[in-house]
């Protein structure tokens, strides 16, 4: 596979990662959200593997396997089990309506291209054109966390952000040093453990996972 083809496949898969992000932004049903999240992780991990092959960076294979096992298999499985156990079907209303969040999402993509322009210009890597897409994925994850008022959706937004960060590390620098990537993956695992506990706590205390009910700690009187 020559670099030209690798670069094109990379762009193509990046488009799917971004599409996954937008899909999550519009999706209201929890099961579909988890599936979309798993697909996004899948495209990301294939993408990382291709970069690893084309650029000959073997440590990226580990990063790809980490993404595959964590983001595609383990985390969606945990989320799925929790959702089944807590009997959640559909999430509550979003804070901003969906067409509006889509428009904000598009604005964020343009903003990301603008922001990363100097980095892209300096880079000589085959993946340089996807740095902006990676930042956009992070931003859209952030947007999802802000606009959704359901604990599970917020967590999926958080994990989608992490996907974007792994993607950014791959496209800007062919991945962070291995010790750092492993550490980040460990942190995500601990976070998964914590939000699992949290879902139960919130569910037993508030009788639903709707974060909107958590308004007791308002400022003032």
């Amino acid at each position: 596979m020559d670099l030209q083809t690798a670069s094109q496949i990379n762009d193509f898969l990046a488009a799917f990662v971004l599409l996954g992000a937008f899909g999550m932004l519009t999706q209201k049903r929890i099961y579909s959200l988890i599936h979309l999240f798993a697909w996004q992780g899948f495209f990301l991990s294939v993408n990382i593997a291709i970069v690893a092959y084309a650029a000959g960076r073997h440590h990226l294979y580990i990063s790809s396997i980490l993404t595959l096992s964590l983001k595609v298999i383990l985390l969606p499985y945990i989320l799925h089990t929790l959702v089944v156990k807590l009997k959640i079907r559909k999430e509550a209303e979003t804070l901003v309506n969906i067409p509006a969040t889509m428009l904000i999402g598009i604005a964020l993509v343009i903003f990301s291209y603008y922001l990363t322009a100097p980095v892209t210009e300096l880079s000589r890597l085959i993946t340089r054109s996807t740095i902006a897409v990676a930042l956009a994925t992070v931003m859209i994850g952030l947007l999802m966390m802000i606009t959704r008022k359901h604990a599970v959706t917020q967590i999926i937004g958080f994990l989608a952000m992490e996907n974007g960060l792994f993607f950014a590390a791959t496209s800007a620098t062919y991945g962070m040093p291995l010790v750092v990537e492993l550490g980040v993956a460990l942190d995500i695992l601990i976070a998964a453990f914590i939000f699992g506990i949290f879902f139960f706590h919130i569910h037993t205390t508030f009788d639903s996972l709707d974060v909107e009910q958590m308004t007791r700690l308002k400022e003032g009187d």
Binding site: S123, V138, L142, E162, F198, I202, T205
Partner: peptide, 30 residues
Amino acid sequence: PTAIEAAWKYFILCGVGIAQALFGTVLLYF
């Protein structure tokens, strides 16, 4: 209820914040 609310806020907001710092670290590494 208030303690769980506070912890959730802490978890989510610091998670968001610290993710930005990781992106900054990636750029620094670049």
